[in-house]
Simulated assay, not measured.
Amino acid sequence: MKKFITLLTLLPLTLLAHLDIAVSYPYIGALTKTIGGEHITTTVLAKGNWDPHFIIPRPSLIAKMRNADALIMNGGQLEIGWLPPLINRAGNPKVDTNAKTFLNLSHHVALLNKPKEVDRKDGDIHPDGNPHFHLNPQNILLLAGVIRDFLISIDTEHKAIYEKNYTDFSTAWSQKMKIWSEKMKEKKGLKVIQFHDNLAYFNNVYGLTNIGTIEPLPGIPPSSKHTIEIIELIKKEQPCCILHDVYHSTKTAEFISEKTGIKVVLMPHDIEALENISDLSSLFDHLTSAIK
C-alpha cells in the first residue's frame, strides 16, 4: 500500500485531475460534457424548467460553487440576479470572474437587440442585448468551440481529446443543422406572437417574424389593456401562433387563443424544460417541429 501511495504522489497532477466544472444552465452542461468527456464532471446550477432569469441562490448551490474547479456562465446579464451572490458566498477563487478558470459565453457571441439606452421604465431589459443566444443552433456550434478552447486553456494535458470531441460534435451537429433548416424552410416568413422575446435568435435564424409579446415590457405581467391590444393585433396581422415559454403561466395566452382562434405552442428553452427534451438535439428537434 505504501508503494502504491508513493507511486501516486510521483504522477503528474494533470494525470490525476478530474475537473469539476460548474455551469449555470443545462445546455452549457451538455456542451461542456460533450467536449470534456471523461475528464470532467459538470455541476449544473439551474434546472431546465426553471425561469432562467430568477434562480434562488440556495445554500446547496453555494456548496457546489465552493467545490468547483471552474465556472462557465451564459452571461448577457441573464444570471445577474442570482449568480453573483453565489460567487461571493462560495469564496472560491476558481469561480471568480477574474480567474482564468471562469468563462462568460456571451463575450463570444454577437448579441441581438442591444438597447440604445437603459431605463427602468422600459421594463427588465438586458443592457448587453438579448441573452438567449443558445436558441440559434449555429451559436451552439460556436459555443462548443469556445468551450473547447477554454478546457484546453485550463487542462492542456488533454488538448488532443478535447479537440477530437469537438470535431466529432461539429460533424454531427452540422448534419443536424441541415435537417432543421430543411424542416423550417417552408415556415420562413411566418408571423408569431411570443410571451417573452426569448426566441429572438431562433426566429432570426429561421426567418420567423415576432410581431408582439404578451408581456407589455420585458418582465412586466400582461395588463388587461395590453391583452386587448394583442388580440386586436392578432386579428389584423394573422400570425400563425403564440410561442410560449414553459415557465410562465399560459393563462393569458389561452384567453387570447380563445378570442382569436390561434394556437398556443409551448417552446422549451433548455434541456429538461419538457419531459421529452433530454439533450440538445431533442431540444431543436422539438423547436423545429412544434410550429405547424
Rank of each mutant, 00 (worst) to 15 (best):
Arg148Pro: 00
Pro221Tyr: 12
Ala110Thr: 00
Gly219His: 11
Lys259Thr: 11
Leu151Cys: 08
Leu10Trp: 05
Leu78Gly: 00
Phe4Thr: 14
Thr101Phe: 00
Asn88Ile: 10
Met267Lys: 09
Leu111Phe: 00
Gly145Phe: 09
Arg58Lys: 15
Leu61Gln: 02
Tyr201Lys: 01
Ala253Tyr: 01
Ile256Lys: 09
Ala30Leu: 10
Lys188Trp: 04
His18Leu: 12
Pro127His: 01
Leu71Gly: 10
Gln175Pro: 03
Leu111Gly: 01
Lys116Trp: 07
Ala200Cys: 11
Tyr166His: 06
Thr167Met: 13
Met184Leu: 07
Gln238Pro: 01
His226Phe: 12
Ile271Val: 15
Asp245Trp: 04
Ile193Trp: 04
Tyr247Gln: 10
His196Gly: 03
Glu272Asn: 15
Ile55Tyr: 07
Cys240Ser: 12
Thr41Leu: 07
Phe169Asp: 08
Lys178Asp: 15
Lys236Glu: 07
Lys187Ile: 07
Lys176Arg: 12
Gly212Pro: 12
Asn74Gly: 06
Lys191Gln: 06
Ile228Gln: 15
Asn88Thr: 12
Asn210Trp: 04
Ile271Arg: 06
Phe202Gln: 10
Thr32Lys: 12
Pro93Arg: 14
Ser181Lys: 14
Val192Asn: 01
Ile291Glu: 00
Phe195Thr: 01
Ser289Val: 02
Pro12Arg: 13
Ser174Asp: 10
Ser60Ile: 13
Ser170Asp: 05
Gly81Asn: 14
Ile56Asn: 10
Pro93Gly: 12
Asn74Thr: 15
Asp51Tyr: 14
Leu190Val: 07
Phe202Glu: 11
Asp279Thr: 06
Ser24Arg: 05
Asp20His: 08
His269Arg: 14
Gln175Trp: 02
Thr260Val: 03
Arg58Pro: 06
Leu151Ser: 00
Gly76Pro: 02
Gly48Glu: 03
Pro52Glu: 08
Thr227Asp: 04
Ala99Thr: 13
Val264Thr: 10
Ser174Asn: 14
Ile87Thr: 04
Arg148Asp: 02
Gln238Lys: 15
Asn136Pro: 08
Thr42Trp: 09
Leu287Trp: 01
Met73His: 05
